[in-house]
C-alpha cells in the first residue's frame, strides 16, 4: 500500500519477568496498519495477540512486563518513548480499544450516562468544559450512531439492565466517541451469540468505513477475519508467521501452521473434522530454539531447529516466516493434514 503507515510495529520483543525466569512472549513482531485499513490478527489462545495490542496502548503491567526491543510508531512517533501526557493524547483520540467482554469493560455501579459523560467530556477539545446539558446531548448522539434505540432511557440504565449486544454497542460508541484514527477490537463478538455477533460486527464495519478509521480486529475465528478484513496477520507463539491480503490467504496459504489451522476449522459443507495440529503451543519460559512451530511441524527440517525464520516475501504482498520458501515468488507447498470423515 502507498503512503506511510498509521501504525508500525517494528521488531517488538516483550517479556514477562516471573518467578523462575523470563517468559519471552513476543519474539520480534512486525505489523503495519495503513490509514483506513482493516487488519485482522488471528491466532490461538496464548499466541500473544492481546499482549501486542496492550504494548501498542502502553498498558502492559510494568514492571513485570518488559519491552526488551523494537519500536511502535504511531503517525511516525514512537509510543514507547512517550511521556504520560503525550500518551494521554494518543489514547482515545489516536487509538481506542474495544474489549472482548463488554460486561467487564463497563463499570457495574455507574449508569451508562455517567460512564459516557466522562468519555464525551474527554473527547472534546481541551480547555473547555461542557455543560451538563451539552454532555447529555452529545452522549445521546453518540449512542444513536451505534443504532441503539431509545438512548435517553439508556443513559439512566445500569449495565446489568442491558443485553450483551447492547453493552458491546455502548463500548463501541465510547471507543469511537473521540473519533480515533485507529480502533483495536479485541474479540468484539466472541462473548456474544452468532446472530448478535453478526449484528455487532456489521455495525463496526459500517462505522469504521464511514469515518475511514483503521481497525485491527483480533480474533481466533478465521471465519470472522475472512468476512471483515483486508489483510490478515497470523500469529503463533509470539511470532507473526504469515501475513497476506485476506482473499489471497484464504485461497492459498503458505505456512504449515496456517494450513493446519484452516484444515482444523469444521466446514459447514461437512466432510469430517481434521485431527488438528498435534502437540501444543510451547511454554514461553523455555521456547524452542529456531522456529517456534518446529516441534509441531510435519515438514520440519534441520535448519528449523537451529535458526529462526524471518518473514520474507513469498509472492507479492504475501509474507511468510518459513524455511520451506527460501527464494521468494514461488508455489505453495501443501502440508497434508489428516482429516477423518465423521458424522
Amino acid at each position: 500500500m502507498s503512503g506511510h503507515p498509521l501504525l508500525e510495529i517494528k521488531d517488538l520483543y516483550v517479556q514477562f519477568n516471573v518467578y523462575g525466569g523470563a517468559l519471552k512472549v513476543l519474539d520480534g513482531v512486525n505489523i503495519e496498519v495503513h490509514p483506513g485499513e482493516k487488519v485482522g490478527l488471528v491466532g490461538e489462545t496464548g499466541a500473544g495477540k492481546t499482549t501486542t495490542m496492550k504494548a501498542v496502548l502502553h498498558v502492559l503491567p510494568e514492571p513485570a512486563a518488559q519491552i526488551t526491543g523494537g519500536e511502535i510508531l504511531f503517525d511516525g512517533q514512537d509510543i514507547l518513548k512517550m511521556v504520560p501526557s503525550q500518551l494521554k493524547q494518543i489514547r482515545g483520540k489516536g487509538i481506542a480499544m474495544i474489549f472482548q467482554d463488554p460486561t467487564l469493560a463497563l463499570n457495574p455501579v455507574f449508569t451508562v450516562g455517567e460512564q459516557m459523560s466522562a468519555v464525551v467530556q474527554y473527547s472534546m477539545e481541551a480547555g473547555r468544559n461542557l455543560t451538563k446539558r451539552e454532555v447529555r446531548e452529545r452522549s445521546i448522539t453518540t449512542l444513536k450512531e451505534v443504532s441503539l434505540a431509545d438512548p435517553e432511557r439508556l443513559l439512566g440504565n445500569y449495565p446489568i439492565q442491558l443485553s450483551g449486544g447492547m453493552r458491546q454497542r455502548i463500548c463501541i460508541a465510547m471507543a469511537l466517541a473521540a473519533r480515533p484514527k485507529l480502533l483495536i477490537a479485541d474479540e468484539p463478538g466472541t462473548s456474544l451469540d452468532v446472530t448478535i455477533q453478526d449484528q455487532v460486527l456489521r455495525l463496526l464495519d459500517e462505522l469504521v468505513e464511514k469515518r475511514n478509521t483503521a481497525i485491527i480486529l483480533i480474533t481466533h475465528s478465521l471465519g470472522v477475519v475472512r468476512e471483515r478484513t483486508d489483510r490478515v496477520y497470523v500469529m503463533y507463539a509470539g511470532n507473526i508467521v504469515e501475513n497476506a491480503p485476506t482473499t489471497q490467504l484464504y485461497s492459498r496459504s503458505f505456512h504449515p501452521y496456517t494450513q493446519g489451522l484452516m484444515a482444523a476449522v469444521p466446514k459447514l459443507t461437512g466432510g469430517g473434522v481434521s485431527d488438528g495440529i498435534p502437540g501444543r503451543m510451547p511454554a514461553y519460559l523455555n521456547p524452542p530454539q529456531g522456529c517456534r512451530f518446529s516441534p509441531r511441524c510435519p515438514r520440519v527440517m534441520e535448519i528449523c531447529r537451529g535458526e529462526k525464520p524471518m518473514l520474507r516475501e513469498a509472492s507479492p504482498g504475501h509474507q511468510v516466516a518459513c524455511f520451506l520458501y527460501p527464494r521468494g515468488n514461488e508455489l505453495e507447498i501443501n502440508t497434508k493434514w489428516n482429516v477423518s470423515s465423521g458424522g
Binding site: 481466533h220 473434522v273 465423521g342
Partner: peptide
C-alpha cells in the same frame, strides 16, 4: 478449546 485441539477430541468421540 482451540480449533487445532478441537478436532482431536471430536474424532476421539466419534
Amino acid at each position: 478449546l482451540d480449533v487445532s485441539v478441537q478436532g482431536k477430541i471430536i474424532n476421539l468421540l466419534l
